[in-house]
């Protein structure tokens, strides 16, 4: 028995050895770790048509043992930027890099102050991330600044969508995202029957083709609450991530019209991974498809494309909101 215990102890101690890692700084090794994690987890290589192997070849040759932390950080950020994904990022204890600006090439003009002063002049309330009130007599307006506490959003429209209100404007312009998980549930208040509102695709392994089939998500009709008012969702290129999800899911509802600019996209859910020097790399590992099966990574197209201009905003006119009011009054 004692020999067995000695033998097992030796085996056990042997297992300890491969656990000994530390905070090392070896630029080529760190770049390999970084590149490999992105290679095995990023979901949009085909969508973005990026040759990740070429990115490795181009950057690995820049790395030498004397490469500084700052240089390595910049090389990794440059690699991530080639993917043009606002969810991708690299973080060290001293800085954050690689947030791709999805608004590039778009004229994003939006003024919450103008809406509050000119369109909600009869009065408005602010509850959490939500500013709401009546515009144009019988149209209810709710602006969502950040996709959080969506149960509060449900409370607001349930309290205010009475028979005197003929339409609802949901404004997610310049909304950078947050949590959209409750959207299919709240859409149950606006549908008569089970409605397909979008699909998720998740990475299922390290190879490019390792993805789940689209997992459809449905809005189930709420037997307790039902609204049949027309809805306009306002979007612009600053509507990103969860607010793009929301726009895509609302678009699947027959009573909803999207007005404004194509959203910023951001269909990916991101995961984080720590490299062996303590830096954290984040990349998109899941995709969201609208009800028609299109990825929303590049944005959700509006039904009516309207662009605000700084000149018109200066005159006190929000053309997107005016179009929404016009549609709901028709």
């Amino acid at each position: 028995m004692k020999y067995l215990i000695i033998l097992l102890t030796v085996i056990n101690v042997g297992c300890v050895k491969d656990l000994s890692t530390g905070l090392d700084f070896d630029p080529p090794t760190l770049y390999d770790e970084f590149w490999e994690y992105v290679d095995e987890n990023y979901i949009y290589f085909d969508e973005k048509q990026v040759d990740w192997d070429s990115v490795y070849i181009a950057n690995a040759q820049k790395l030498i043992a004397s490469t500084t932390e700052e240089q390595l950080f910049d090389i990794m950020v440059e690699s991530l930027m080639s993917l043009k994904d606002g969810h991708n990022a690299l973080r060290s204890p001293s800085k954050v890099g690689a947030f791709y600006d999805f608004r590039n090439g778009y004229n994003v003009q939006f003024s919450a102050e103008l809406i509050d002063s000119a369109y909600l002049s009869a009065g408005f309330e602010i509850d959490g991330n939500y500013t709401h009130g009546v515009v144009a007599d019988s149209i209810y307006y709710i602006r969502i600044d950040r996709m959080q506490q969506l149960h509060l959003f449900m409370d607001i429209y349930r309290e205010n969508l009475d028979s005197n209100i003929k339409g609802l404007v949901i404004d997610v312009r310049s909304n950078g995202g947050g949590d959209s998980n409750l959207v299919p549930t709240l859409l149950g208040d606006f549908v008569d029957s089970r409605t397909h509102v979008g699909s998720y695709i998740e990475k299922s392994g390290p190879n490019r083709a390792d993805e789940t089939d689209p997992i459809r998500v449905f809005a189930e009709p709420n037997s307790q609450v039902h609204f049949d008012q027309e809805i306009v969702v306002l979007t612009n290129r600053g509507s990103y991530s969860a607010s793009s999800y929301m726009a895509a899911m609302f678009k699947a509802i027959p009573s909803v019209t999207l007005v404004g600019q194509v959203t910023g996209g951001g269909g990916g859910g991101n995961s984080n991974f720590e490299l062996s020097n303590g830096w954290i790399v984040s990349v998109s590992v899941s995709d969201f498809l609208d009800a028609a099966g299109r990825s929303i990574e590049h944005g959700v197209e509006p039904d009516y494309e309207i662009n605000n201009t700084s000149e018109r905003l200066g005159l006190g006119i929000d053309d997107m909101l005016d179009k929404a009011i016009e549609l709901l009054n028709d």
Binding site: H87, S92, N270, S271, N272, I280, S282, S286
Partner: peptide, 10 residues
Amino acid sequence: KSSLVGFGNN
């Protein structure tokens, strides 16, 4: 948990 980032999908 991390002081650098809130966790996402994992």
